[in-house]
Design a protein around this nucleic acid. Sequence first.
DNA 1: CGGCATCCGAGTAGATACTG
DNA 2: CAGTATCTACTCGGATGCCG
Lengths: 142, 142
Amino acid sequence: MEIETVTDYQKVKSANKIKKMFGHLNPDDMPEFCPIRDVMAVISDKWSILIVLYLGFFPILRFNQLKKKISDISNKMLSERLKVLEADGYLSRTMYPEVPIRVEYQLTDFGHSYLEKLLELTEWSEKHSNTIIENRKKFHKK
Amino acid sequence: MEIETVTDYQKVKSANKIKKMFGHLNPDDMPEFCPIRDVMAVISDKWSILIVLYLGFFPILRFNQLKKKISDISNKMLSERLKVLEADGYLSRTMYPEVPIRVEYQLTDFGHSYLEKLLELTEWSEKHSNTIIENRKKFHKK
DNA sequence: CGGCATCCGAGTAGATACTG
DNA sequence: CAGTATCTACTCGGATGCCG
């Protein structure tokens, strides 16, 4: 397991970022009135992440295509998350009033900007997933 | 609202990253056997995020201190998340067998490395939270 | 003090059937 | 096809009490 050194400088830098972000709030009230928490709730949602990843890979997908790809999502969840993601501006929904109806979803530019950030995190988690799984095993053996 | 341009080049780059990450799996089975999804489930959890942020700002915290800061978390949730985060290697738990007992939590170097990634995402979400709230309002007015 | 065990209620997710 | 509506099941999470 390659341990990467985190310098004290980096730790201070992180602390300062946190202070800057949340400093204007009373730290003891932070959770209550926090727009960041609100935004994070959407973009860190399990299904939202998958939807965004799939739309990052397949630029345009219809409702049922998406449903097939994310095989274990229900109609309800999918339509709900799509609505939230559309409302927040991450993706666009285009309806073609043909018969049968056709609806296409794709990431907006804003959604792509989010995707880039998300990918940094998923890349990190991929890079370290082995370490984490190992850690977990060791821990439960104790 | 400042729209930032996302070039086609960046979009392709994102798609390639996704392909690299998930390409070795059958895309249609991706959700089932995905270690990334497993790791993400932990680190994108609402409470875990808050715990890591607080420990990024206050380097050492005891159980009840943490509980007071994250004012709306229950004992159960807190101890559960702490255990998971410890198991995965994000934080360390040090027990001092005094009376009354004292237990201190702090981020490991690995936890700090994660924190850095997390902060990039929270910074992004802070930067765009106004836009998102606006989007949401517009959407629900329609 | 730290935190586990138990219980219990509310909310959420899934399955299914149905509609424009 | 793209959802919505309804019902059920179950999980999550909060409250409480207890113990090392």
